Computed example of a mutant assay.
Amino acid sequence: MLWLLAHDQYALLGRGGVAREVWKLYFHWYGTLRHGSFPAGDHLWQYPPGAGAVLLSPALLPGLTYFQAFVTLTLLTDAAITLVLARVGTRPGRSLRGAALWTAGLPLLLHIPLARYDVQVTAFAVISLLTMSRSRHMSGVFAALGALVKVWPALALIGTPRGRSTREAWTAAAVTAVTLLSLLAALFRHPFDFLRQQGGRGVQIESLGGTVLMFARRAGWPGHTHYQYGAVEFVGPHVHTVALCSLVLTAVAFALLLLWRMRNRRWTPATPYDAALAAVLLFTVTSRVISPQYMIWLIGLAAVCLTSRHTTQRPVALLVLAATAVSVVEYPAYYGDVINSTWAGCLLMLVRNTLLTSAAVVSFIRLWRSGRPLVERTKAGTPPRNPHEIPAVFRTDG
């Protein structure tokens, strides 16, 4: 991955476009943040205030350039995630498959993870989930820290068992979020300007809605692509309708997750992990934006699921890996085809987004079924998925 980052001028690696995000855009924001202000009126700044701390972190390594320091810290974070997954995987009833998935899955994205701060965000979610069984308070703190950087890690708490566990984790998260937001608001100017920029986003070409518009373009739709809000988006008739449909689907996904929480009657050690992966998948596929770096989140959460022998998400992890492999074919290698909606670009996005949608559907269905009591599933003709779900008195494996 480091070698690819050092040679990213090749056409198939994006001609330097991947690394440019750090040494140009992040460094520009770094200069603004150092002067005590978040980027105000910058339509590219669409991140919660906690992102500022991550972008300022390269200052901790003064002997390096900003780019070198950013990549070094990303590598250290990657190592920390691997270490945590491996340490948890050696405990009784756990598995090293999670550490193996993270180690083998991340390089499928080539050098993209080293030139984005999504590895750091994923670390907060991974640690939040893996500390949940020992300290609900710390789990809530890490989920809040991640949410302040990029919102989605808050979904790590959606699978906390009802009752005291939920109250402890969510209260710790709320107190942490309010405290740090107040601190950032006191230290920096314009901490909430990102809300205005985020609300103006349209339909990115790599989203599910973008795939629909790509095929519509091939059929004669008069719209076109335009770079805005930090991504290539579609502009033209009916784009607003497609964006609205995405928001409606996101609301439906949220309703389904709430319904699952209310109806779920069985929590296993893996339920919080499985629920987090299902939730992030649902919100990803219904989003107006699905950038390749989003796959880092899914690989990290799938890795957490695989640390538990009780997980129901093994097939989902394979679908995530397949979608990841396709993602780096469309970006950066064939991004021009995706932008111009050629048949190659259309088919690549269709395959990637079909894999992601399939992963989301399978993930939620398996999560839903795992919440039914064993007796109820047996009566319905659904056998247990692994021997750990079988009461000891019925086991034949000794």
Score class of each variant (00 low, 15 high):
132 M>W: 06
132 M>C: 04
135 S>M: 06
137 H>E: 13
141 V>Y: 06
144 A>V: 00
145 L>G: 02
145 L>F: 08
146 G>T: 03
148 L>N: 14
150 K>F: 04
150 K>P: 03
151 V>I: 11
152 W>M: 07
152 W>Y: 13
153 P>T: 11
154 A>C: 12
155 L>H: 04
156 A>I: 00
158 I>Q: 03
158 I>L: 14
161 P>M: 14
162 R>N: 09
165 S>W: 09
167 R>V: 14
168 E>M: 12
169 A>R: 00
169 A>M: 07
170 W>M: 12
172 A>E: 03
173 A>P: 07
177 A>S: 15
179 T>W: 10
179 T>H: 01
181 L>Q: 11
183 L>F: 15
183 L>A: 15
186 A>I: 05
186 A>F: 14
187 L>Q: 14
187 L>D: 06
189 R>Y: 07
190 H>R: 08
192 F>M: 12
193 D>A: 14
195 L>P: 10
196 R>W: 12
197 Q>F: 06
199 G>K: 02
200 G>L: 12
200 G>N: 03
200 G>Y: 06
201 R>T: 09
201 R>H: 07
205 I>G: 02
206 E>Y: 04
206 E>M: 04
207 S>Q: 08
208 L>H: 01
208 L>P: 00
211 T>V: 13
212 V>M: 02
213 L>P: 01
216 A>F: 02
216 A>G: 15
218 R>W: 10
219 A>G: 13
222 P>T: 05
222 P>G: 07
223 G>D: 09
223 G>K: 06
224 H>W: 01
225 T>N: 03
226 H>A: 12
227 Y>P: 07
227 Y>E: 14
228 Q>D: 12
231 A>D: 11
233 E>H: 10
235 V>N: 10
240 H>I: 08
240 H>C: 01
242 V>F: 09
242 V>G: 05
243 A>K: 15
244 L>R: 04
245 C>V: 15
245 C>L: 13
247 L>Y: 14
247 L>F: 09
249 L>Y: 02
249 L>E: 02
250 T>F: 07
250 T>S: 05
250 T>W: 03
251 A>S: 06
252 V>K: 01
253 A>G: 02
255 A>T: 07
255 A>H: 08
256 L>C: 11
257 L>C: 06
258 L>G: 05
258 L>K: 01
259 L>V: 11
259 L>E: 10
263 R>Q: 14
264 N>K: 04
